[in-house]
Simulated scan of single mutants.
Amino acid sequence: MIRKATLSDIPVIHEMVRELAEYEKCLDEARATEEQLREALFGEQPAAFAHIAQDESGEPVGFSLWFLNFSTWRGVHGIYLEDLYVRPEARGGGHGKALLTELARICVARGYERLEWSVLNWNTPSIAFYESLGARPQDEWMVYRLTDEALGRLGA
């Protein structure tokens, strides 16, 4: 079952964000606090949205966290999926596909024309899963990122 996240899900979302960061070998970079997630998802002006995947007992086993982007070429919003995570013991149970299906349903219902995300190039199980759904890599684009000192220097 997939449902919209609620305020009471913040602790489990925070836990799973940290589990995902550990899986991606970047736990030291996962500095978001529960309070930051609470503000981003449920503050006065939410910047992001989340869904929870539950198992048959109602236990949260995965989540998606996403926000709106905008395509100047298409002239409409899309969804950028920041995180998709299913706990290891629940993988293979259809939760990841259900989370992506819900986001695709939102896109179709709202007239959004893109659902995009990034995946680490070494994460072959996820790449195979995404491609099995019809997703294709955008090999002609490279992701760039400014953080920490470089961002501070440029913004000073």
Rank of each mutant, 00 (worst) to 15 (best):
49 F>W: 14
57 S>L: 09
81 L>E: 11
9 D>P: 07
54 Q>T: 08
118 S>R: 15
114 R>K: 13
82 E>C: 09
64 S>Y: 01
18 R>E: 12
17 V>R: 12
152 G>A: 12
126 S>Y: 03
135 A>P: 08
47 A>V: 12
130 Y>I: 03
61 V>I: 05
69 N>V: 03
46 P>S: 02
37 L>H: 07
77 H>W: 07
14 H>L: 01
153 R>F: 05
52 I>H: 05
61 V>Q: 09
21 A>R: 06
138 Q>C: 12
151 L>S: 10
78 G>N: 06
124 T>N: 14
114 R>H: 13
108 V>A: 08
30 A>E: 10
106 I>E: 09
32 A>P: 09
13 I>K: 10
36 Q>F: 07
3 R>H: 00
141 W>S: 01
111 G>K: 06
38 R>G: 09
1 M>E: 03
97 K>D: 07
47 A>N: 13
50 A>P: 09
16 M>G: 04
153 R>S: 08
41 L>P: 04
124 T>L: 12
35 E>M: 06
107 C>F: 00
13 I>Q: 11
129 F>N: 09
137 P>V: 02
156 A>D: 13
15 E>H: 15
68 L>T: 10
31 R>Y: 13
16 M>K: 12
115 L>R: 07
148 D>R: 15
140 E>G: 02
139 D>A: 11
39 E>P: 11
140 E>Q: 06
2 I>P: 05
67 F>Q: 06
58 G>V: 05
5 A>I: 05
18 R>A: 11
154 L>R: 15
135 A>V: 08
106 I>S: 01
129 F>G: 09
96 G>A: 10
43 G>P: 04
112 Y>T: 01
29 E>W: 14
14 H>I: 00
115 L>W: 06
84 L>A: 09
30 A>T: 06
146 L>V: 00
57 S>C: 06
57 S>A: 10
20 L>H: 04
3 R>Q: 02
127 I>R: 14
3 R>W: 01
91 R>T: 01
77 H>N: 14
98 A>G: 07
134 G>L: 02
50 A>T: 04
42 F>N: 03
79 I>A: 00
66 W>A: 05
35 E>P: 11
100 L>Y: 00
60 P>T: 02
142 M>H: 15
13 I>D: 04
33 T>M: 04
54 Q>V: 08
142 M>R: 15
83 D>G: 10
65 L>T: 08
110 R>W: 00
3 R>G: 02
108 V>I: 06
15 E>R: 15
85 Y>W: 08
43 G>F: 01
85 Y>V: 04
23 Y>R: 06
87 R>Y: 06
38 R>Q: 13
81 L>G: 07
69 N>L: 04
78 G>F: 06
151 L>V: 01
122 W>S: 07
